[in-house]
Design a protein around this nucleic acid. Structure first.
Lengths: 260, 260
DNA sequence: TCGTACAGCGTACGTTGTACGATGTACGGG
DNA sequence: CCCGTACATCGTACAACGTACGCTGTACGA
């Protein structure tokens, strides 16, 4: 088979999850034997496995093995795997380098935000596969959110529009990054990279697809295939899409009669 | 735990997969007992299960049970689950209603393409979770591709740009739809819908987030939360994002000096 | 008529998250 | 100083998953 798991986070009690994310010291126990590890070590080990071998390799057994403990020991640090994913993601957010771009034009600032997120997904590809519908509301995300909103501050948008524009850019960057993850997973599982896959299929498809009934598909499909060497080029799609997105946001900013 | 599987397709031999997608009759056997089912019945059963209970419920055992046969019987119709996903997706593409929009302005045509895809994901939410990096190159996709390229034909873009713009729109619609799937899966697993989740977290977060160090996050976050009743509103994000995207593409079309 | 190609499928294996309960540790009240 | 108890650790077990293997029975071609 060939599944690439994406996982959902935030499954359990919100208060408990927030206490973990913010490392609430009051939650620490008083009696009993000393703990061999701490939460940061567990999260770091999980991230190391995910970076090296993908999110599928992050199993409770594997992370425990990495730390030299039994699988069930992890459950004394965390309620379950969903919370581990929340903590991994918030830690990844916290680790992002954030260049100060004050004074530059908003378009440059927003492009930098997109590139920073693209770099995040390049460093931690697994992060692109985690749903952010219910994001980990930890210190890492909050710092990231504050920084990214600054790119959209003072250009004439209201608060909701600022959030809308940021969401749009981040959704796009994440969607682009998922393709890169899929490409890696596909290569790993089928021992065939995208170019080989496309080369194997393009010839066969040419015999099945009638250019008479599908003139545009035949012409444009082969033009795009030839240009990218495959059915899809994630790098090109990112650069092209980001420019269109910024143009679209510029139209909104101009409609609001903005300075800078 | 809380995984929402997305699955990869196109794992095996490309020629075999294409023969299945295009229902190559020459691949049918000559001797042996009569078959109780056909490929279309298997695919239809799998789609029915996925529509009703999500892609996670589509297991080989479950689909077989739905058809009144043993699990291993499916392997006489298909090489494996990856091919089943390819066939499901191509069948879903083939089933999309396609209104003729010739004569209308390109922006309306492209918005219609986006809405048609959004409707696909509304009818078959599971389709949004399948990677399309290596799409099922079957008749359903080819018809869809031809139809969608027509929306971008004759407006001054070259072949590669037409494919780029279509890819951008489809990537965006799919990313939006994934959020809707995640929302449903989250509700199913945590017995808490997005508004309840946000209500439970917003109050707790307010005590952890310092408005002094995170002024924008506090202000914009609560404005957006109040506007949507949650951390994220997929429906609003779709409408907002599509308008920006079309504006961005319009800038490209104008730069090419287009008519219509 | 019968050899053989094929359909159907029962069983089994290795993998997952995690519930349960046994065992051992070390703190705090007497 | 000492022991009850709260806690850490983790071996075992279970119900899923995809699918490899090999057996049984069918029906076509010679």
């Amino acid at each position: 088979m060939a599944p690439v798991a994406t996982a959902r986070s935030s499954a359990g009690d919100p208060a408990r999850t927030l206490r973990l994310l913010w490392r609430d010291a009051a939650a620490a126990p008083r009696r009993g034997p000393q703990r061999a590890l701490d939460l940061d070590a567990v999260v770091a080990a999980a991230i190391a496995v995910a970076d090296a071998e993908g999110l599928d390799a992050v199993t409770m057994r594997r992370v425990a093995e990495e730390l030299g403990v039994g699988a069930m020991t992890l459950y004394t640090y965390l309620p379950g795997k969903a919370e581990l994913l929340d903590l991994m993601l918030d830690a990844a957010y916290a680790s992002m380098p954030r260049a100060d771009a004050t004074g530059r034009p908003w378009r440059e600032r927003l492009a930098a935000v997109a590139d920073e997120n693209r770099a995040l997904f390049a460093a931690h590809a697994w992060a692109a596969t985690v749903s952010t519908l219910r994001p980990p509301l930890g210190p890492g995300l909050m710092t990231k959110y504050e920084h990214e909103l600054a790119a959209l501050d003072g250009i004439g948008l209201d608060d909701v529009e600022m959030d809308d524009c940021l969401t749009l850019v981040l959704t796009f960057v994440q969607a682009s990054a998922r393709d890169a993850v899929d490409a890696r997973a596909a290569r790993h599982q089928s021992a065939m990279d995208d170019e080989q896959w496309w080369a194997a299929n393009a010839g066969l498809l040419a015999r099945l697809l009638d250019p008479g009934t599908h003139p545009l598909a035949s012409r444009v499909g082969s033009a795009a295939g030839a240009a990218h060497g495959s059915a899809h080029d994630p790098e090109h799609a990112y650069r092209f899409g980001l420019e269109r997105l910024l143009d679209g946001i510029a139209a909104l900013v101009e409609a609001r009669g903005a300075p800078r």
